[in-house]
C-alpha cells in the first residue's frame, strides 16, 4: 500500500504543472491558484483511498481542485467579500494592436463564465474526452457539449479569427 501511495505521489508531482495551469485559469489569480492547489493536494492525500486505480488521476485531481475553489468562493460570499467567481475582469480588448496573442486569449478566457471556461480548459487545453470532462464538472455529457459550444462561440466573438502564433 505504501508503495502504491509513493507511486501516486510521484504521479501527482508530474501532474503539478498541469494542475497549476488549470487552477490559475480557473481562479484567474496566481496567488489564489497556488493556495487552492495546495489545499487540493492536501485533501487528495488525506483521502487518497477514494481514488479508484484504473481511473484517471488527472481527472480526479481536476475535480478536487475545482471543488476546492468553488468551496472557497462560497466561503468568500458568506463573508461578504467581492464575488470572484464570475466577476468580469478588466475588459482589455483582444485586438486593438495587442502584441501578445497569449495574453489576448487568456483574457478572453477569463471573461467567460466559469462553467464555459472550465469546459474549454478541460477539453481543449487538457485534452480530456467529453466523458471525463463531464465527470469532472459533475454534469451530463449533453450539458458539457452545450457549454463547449457556447464557450467556443463566445471566444470566437471575442477574438475573431485572427490567429498569430
Amino acid at each position: 500500500m505504501s508503495d502504491d501511495l509513493a507511486a501516486i505521489r510521484t504521479e501527482l508531482v508530474a501532474l503539478l504543472p498541469r494542475l497549476r495551469r488549470f487552477a490559475r485559469a480557473l481562479t484567474r489569480h496566481a496567488a489564489d491558484a497556488d493556495d487552492v492547489l495546495q489545499a487540493a493536494l492536501e485533501k487528495a492525500l488525506a483521502r487518497i483511498g477514494s481514488w479508484q486505480p484504473g481511473t484517471r488521476l488527472d481527472s480526479w485531481m481536476f475535480t478536487i481542485v475545482r471543488n476546492t475553489w468553488l468551496d472557497e468562493v462560497r466561503a468568500r460570499r458568506r463573508r461578504g467579500e467581492v464575488d470572484v467567481l464570475d466577476t468580469a475582469l478588466a475588459t482589455v480588448p483582444a485586438a486593438e494592436g495587442s502584441v501578445d496573442d497569449t495574453l489576448s486569449v487568456q483574457r478572453a478566457m477569463e471573461s467567460l463564465p466559469e462553467e464555459q471556461r472550465s469546459a474549454l480548459l478541460l477539453v481543449l487545453v487538457e485534452g480530456l474526452p467529453y466523458r471525463e470532462a463531464a465527470t469532472v464538472l459533475d454534469i451530463p455529457i449533453g450539458t458539457l457539449t452545450s457549454r463547449l459550444a457556447r464557450g467556443r462561440e463566445a471566444l470566437q466573438r471575442l477574438l475573431g479569427g485572427r490567429s498569430e502564433p
Binding site: D101, V105, L124, P165
Partner: peptide, 8 residues
C-alpha cells in the same frame, strides 16, 4: 483549439 493550446 490550437490557438488556445498555444496560449496555455
Amino acid at each position: 483549439r490550437d490557438r488556445l493550446q498555444r496560449a496555455y
